[in-house]
Each structure stands twice: as structure tokens, then as C-alpha cells.
Amino acid sequence: MASTVLRRLGLRYIKCRVSVFNVETRSEKYTRNFVTTSRVLAGRLFTEKHEWINVSDGVGTVGISEYAQDKLGEVVYVQLPETGIDVEANGEAGCLESVKAASEIYSPVSGSITEINQVLANTPNLINDSPYEKGWLFKIKLSQPDELKSLMDEDRYKKFTESQD
């Protein structure tokens, strides 16, 4: 009896925390709408394979860069990893299809996938229209945050893409 009550309480406690978390993320999203594009990019780190990651509280949001979406052309299909699976830094973590080409997505860091952007299933072209905001791909709980040190900040990435053309 007591244990059921406790379990119920525990459940409620968890639910409570989840809802608080939701509110937090939502408010974060709202504030984001007001900042300028350069501020939006400020926290982002980039890989040489043109993925970006934005980390907050140990969880990184991952997407592909403006440069990458432009090179790919219109994305028509997005295959994302399953939530809960572990991926390694530079390991395959999905695939994008555009103009008859299947392009691998690589995870910028090691960790486990906590969430995928479900909206992309029906509207894959959000990756083209809003690569840094609505077109994010997945969220990952970092297992080795030190890996972030090897990534490029926006300035370095910009120079890197210039050297690629």
C-alpha cells in the first residue's frame, strides 16, 4: 500500500519535473525568436563535415549548416537515428536525401540520442528553410563533453567553408 502511494508520488514528481522542463525549453524557444541571427549562431560549434551542435545542460542540439544545406539542394527525405541509441563522434547518425543523392549525417560528439525532430518527417525541407532553427535534426546527451574542444566556432567554420570553395 505504502509503496504504491510512494510510487504514485514518485511518478507525479517525475511528471512534474518533466512539465517544468517543457516550460523551460519552451520559454527558451520564445526568447530565441527575439535575438538576431548572429546571436543565434553564437553558441554553435561546427564540424568539418558541416554539422553544427549547440549544447545546453549537457544536451546538444544537432543540425547541418547553411553551407551544407545549400550544397545539398532540396532535402526530400530525412532518416534519423532512433532515440535511446548511442552514437560515437564522427559516427553515422542518419541520412538525408536530396536530388538523388543520399548523404550521411555524422554526429559531432559521442553520446545517446534523446530526441529527434519529428516535424522533419513530413516537412524535410525545413532543413533548407531553417537549418539553424526549425530544421534541427536530433538532440544528444553528451558522454564526452571534451570532444567539443576539437570543434570550430562560427568564425573558424566560416573561414573553413571559404577555403572549401
Binding site: E48, K100, A101, A102, S103, E104, Y106
Partner: peptide, 8 residues
């Protein structure tokens, strides 16, 4: 008919 695969 053309198709492609792109890695890093």
C-alpha cells in the same frame, strides 16, 4: 538513371 551516395 543517376543516383549518388555521399559520405564525409
Amino acid at each position: 538513371g543517376t543516383a549518388a551516395k555521399l559520405g564525409g
